[in-house]
Design a protein around this nucleic acid. Sequence first.
DNA 1: TTGACATGCAAGTGAGCACTTGCCTATACA
DNA 2: TGTATAGGCAAGTGCTCACTTGCATGTCAA
Lengths: 92, 92
Amino acid sequence: MFKALADATRRAILDELQDRDGQSLFELCTRLTMRHGLGSTRQAVSQHLEVLEEAGLVTVRREGRYKFHHLDTRPLRQIAVRWPVPDEGESS
Amino acid sequence: MFKALADATRRAILDELQDRDGQSLFELCTRLTMRHGLGSTRQAVSQHLEVLEEAGLVTVRREGRYKFHHLDTRPLRQIAVRWPVPDEGESS
DNA sequence: TTGACATGCAAGTGAGCACTTGCCTATACA
DNA sequence: TGTATAGGCAAGTGCTCACTTGCATGTCAA
């Protein structure tokens, strides 16, 4: 999971899925290019999605010839559990 | 910072510093070998500490010929901010 | 069935990264 | 001053990883 977060393109994919959940592969490719300025090919994005899926950060729902991707941030919780961050006086 | 977390040895260093803060380089080498079964040389650990330092996860305090390392988990907060994790019904 | 669209599979390539190796600097102690 | 200890610097090596390339599979509409 930590290795999955190590790549900037994969983090952009997570951002994109957070902004609009359930995107297909082509949809992600388009929006990554448009909004993040990333010139990633379809295959590259597909491989990134595989990594994110293995990390449990993205789940997949197949529907006909489409494959929709959903964000699952729950694996990130173990980071906060493993290395707790002290409060920094923000009580608002 | 994400790349710094991507390596298992570096994560073990963070664990070790959390268990006992302010360790020197040799101290970390010894304890990594003893407690984590990692056969890392001094140079390897030193390079890992450089990466962790650049990521802001480890701060350094020099004292004579020793160099003590301290854990700083605050950079990890941006992960929780960027991809919030929904509560999972634990109200305790 | 045929053609267009969405995705999958797999080998190959280049760059980055973890690690080693060898030597050097600096501090403490006799 | 000499020696041992703690750490630093830098070139080299092997492996991993991101990405490409080319073709194959599967789904939908006409």
